[in-house]
């Protein structure tokens, strides 16, 4: 190495400049992690929820056809089972290992069970592989038991045929209880 050429100062500046560049890259990468972690749509979904459902709100366009989801969790009382009055916008798990999980309703059926391709994957010995599903029809959501071993209960009634689910009514599947909210 020939030490005569560039001045010490230039080399020092290059050295510090390069280290700055290195850390700028690291910080940019960390920011990308942060953008992924704190994405508004992803924050509401948790383990056990279809990632596809979680990723839906994460596109570049913030506008969604479905109503903007209100953050407060308290559901306003509504006449039970009134069709079209207040269409539910999400399913909330209120009891069980997945309590706190929120799945946005998009008009697609929601499957619930232990099978890994369910929308809501339960880790529950009392749930069947394909236990039940929530299906929209004419603005209302119906719960349908998929011939599960231990049954699905809507407000303590065993679900044998598809039943409309009122807002806030508990649907019990094994150890998990979920309800529809606006």
């Amino acid at each position: 190495m020939d030490p005569t050429q560039p001045s010490e100062l230039v080399l020092l500046l290059v050295k510090i400049g390069y280290l700055t560049l290195l850390w700028a890259f690291v910080l940019l990468a960390v920011r990308a992690v942060r953008a992924d972690l704190f994405d508004p749509a992803r924050r509401r979904t948790r383990r056990g929820v279809a990632v596809g459902a979680g990723a839906q709100g994460a596109g570049p366009i913030p506008h969604r056809p479905r109503p903007a989801q209100p953050r407060p969790a308290a559901p306003a009382p509504s006449p039970p089972n009134a069709p079209n009055a207040y269409p539910p916008s999400k399913v909330v798990v209120t009891k069980g290992p997945l309590a706190g999980t929120v799945i946005p309703l998009t008009g697609e059926p929601i499957t619930i069970g232990r099978a890994p391709d369910s929308t809501l994957v339960l880790d529950d010995d009392f749930a069947s592989g394909r236990h039940a599903r929530l299906v929209p029809h004419e603005g209302r959501w119906f719960v349908e038991d998929l011939n599960s071993t231990n049954g699905t209960f809507l407000e303590h009634t065993k679900v044998t045929t598809p039943m409309p689910v009122p807002l806030g009514a508990p649907v019990r599947i094994g150890k998990t209880v979920l309800e529809l909210r606006r």
Binding site: L28, A35, A55, Q56, G57, A58, G59
Partner: peptide, 20 residues
Amino acid sequence: PAGLDIPPYRRRELVLLVFA
């Protein structure tokens, strides 16, 4: 697949790759 929107992952990847 229908109903799926992916976050702008590949764009972020490209930006970071240019930086790399």
